[in-house]
Design a protein around this nucleic acid. Structure first.
Lengths: 335, 335
DNA sequence: GTCGAGCCTGTAAACGATTACAAGAACGAT
DNA sequence: ATCGTTCTTGTAATCGTTTACAGGCTCGAC
């Protein structure tokens, strides 16, 4: 016995399908009509088919959030924030993962044309012209949680990495640390590039020379360990322990680095201070708890979701580019 | 200008919609037909509407994974595993989060009848008769990654908590630790209940008395800290430091606990050994790296996904109940 | 009593795909 | 030349909803 349809409900209620649909959608109807339909619905255990409905009305009442790596704790913060605002607006949130490759991101955006959802929040790691083009041409509104060029004309909410770097550097400076190294993620990613630039600027603004800079293969924990190892092999050419602080491009890298430091018998923060970025849940979970630049992932998620909802309402608004300001969460990994 | 439909493609290609559909689905057609259709598709940028398609064929080629808390790293392991097998089978995976309440889980399962996906993997924290009923009656196949009673007759792949507890206890014993405490999650959850039982059995089997047992309010990091605090307020009644090891019901609790230990000047593993459960990414990221019972989350994810695919193929198979065996990942939090 | 206004309700046409069925074309065999 | 087979293509029904439109009813005003 197949699942009941609206026609079945209409039949057992002794009314027309239109009437059933109307009471189901809360349109005006007589007491008795409502009564009969509800009884039939109850009796048959009828549940409307969202595929048919969204085919007709052209909306799915689903929104998609696409992230590169579910293992990165910064996304859980963002996810929670997005979830909160979209569900308050009556939408279901579904999340999918793209992986680190831009072609997969493009495929995902293009795929939205199939009608999976009414909108998309995407946080791309790598951005190229194809991706921008696919976003511009996308059938449904998309907002980028991250950075794309202004000329792209897409809704964007991004962090202020340079400002965040400044917070990190100045905090270290205030604590008397001047020999600062930098563990970045891949510079061919948007955040990687932004942090590299921000770090250079922040150091220069404070009259400092970086002690060393290394580029991890990705933004993960093991990459952080490897990067730490590489950092030391670079430093061995110079005076022993030529550094007293390291800034990492995100919390996972920072934690990986701290493990490498520990493996070398160095203690954080006494020997070397460490500051991460993202201020994810991992920052407070790590040991010692990690001083981390809060790039506003929760607020970015919230704003991105709001932007998406607003654009769904009105597709003619001029694209907005929101940037949320960082703060510093000081914990025990810096003196 | 609205997005092109199959009718538009048919018109510009000068063929019928049926023919377009056929070449799109790879059914036999002449060279020339394929050629013309592909050119028209290309020219119009046509993308088939999955809503319409799945309305007609009755399948969405999407699968849903529902987890309670995206912040729990055990789910990222599981997610990765599920993703891998379902995408290999040609399905899209979407993940949604239910929260800790069973009513939300029930709502989710019931909601599957709307046709969001062809199947569901759910990892429920709390299980009641409503949930079981909703799973049994669900329009689409459901497999539970967790434990439900055998009489429910649903596909299940679960961990072996008691065996895992035995591994933990015996490992500690082998290291000379006998004064063992236990930090559990809520016992009104399925994993909480299983771990409580397993811990009691494992201790008894080794002739040990628990030093103390506390129940955290949930399976999160802050709950772990609070539970640690509570643990000590219980112990103050007895000899100072009446314990030399703690087992935690999952990695987040273990890490929270370790923070509380550190706050009290206790060093892990010298003063007290700690073993977690789940062997999530957090276990290797934490400091010291956490000895943790690997409950096979990756394999559970994989098997659950395979079970789901198999049931989609053939809905008449007898329900299977797979249990995957634990191993112990020894790291630095135990001597 | 007739008429118009105002409600409810039902009929039927969409939405955009797939697919059963039939019709036409091509071709070889008789 | 005719017939039957096979292969390709087109027509139209269908999936389960929503909704424009029209029909029928009630009611009050004239």
């Amino acid at each position: 016995m197949s699942r009941p349809t609206i026609a079945g409900v209409a039949r057992t209620a002794g009314v027309s399908v239109a009437s059933v649909s109307r009471v189901l959608n809360g349109l005006p109807a007589t007491e008795e009509m409502v009564e009969r339909v509800q009884r039939a619905v109850e009796q048959l255990g009828y549940v409307p088919d969202s595929r048919a409905r969204s085919l007709k009305v052209g909306r799915t009442f689903q929104l998609t959030l696409a992230v590169a790596d579910v293992g990165n704790p910064v996304y859980v913060t963002m996810m929670r924030a997005v979830e909160e605002v979209v569900s308050a607006a009556g939408y279901r949130l579904v999340v999918t993962t793209t992986g680190p490759d831009v072609v997969d991101e493009v495929a995902l955006v293009r795929g939205m044309a199939r009608g999976y959802a009414d909108g998309l929040v995407i946080s791309p790691l790598r951005v190229d012209d194809d991706l921008i083009k696919s976003i511009q041409e996308c059938e449904v509104p998309v907002v980028v949680a991250g950075n794309v060029p202004a000329r792209a004309g897409v809704d964007t909410v991004r962090a202020n990495s340079p400002k965040g770097m400044l917070l990190a550097v100045e905090h270290l400076l205030a604590k008397g640390r001047r020999r600062i190294a930098f563990v970045n993620g891949p510079v061919d990613t948007v955040p990687g590039a932004a942090r590299a630039k921000g770090f250079a600027e922040a150091m220069k603004a404070n009259g400092l020379q970086p002690v060393a800079e290394v580029e991890a293969v990705d933004f993960t924990f093991p990459a952080g360990r490897e990067a730490g190892d590489e950092l030391f092999s670079k430093l061995d050419n110079r005076a022993p322990l030529g550094l007293d602080a390291v800034i990492a491009a995100n919390d996972l890298l920072a934690v990986g680095l701290m493990h490498e430091l520990a493996a070398r018998g160095l203690v954080v923060p006494d020997d070397v201070a460490v500051v991460g970025m993202d201020d994810s849940e991992l920052a407070e979970q790590s040991f010692p708890p990690l001083t981390s630049v809060n790039l506003g992932s929760a607020e970015r998620g919230r704003r991105a979701a709001e932007l998406l909802l607003a654009r769904i309402e009105d597709d003619t608004r001029a694209p907005r580019r929101i940037v949320v300001q960082p703060t510093l969460s000081v914990r025990k990994s810096t003196p």
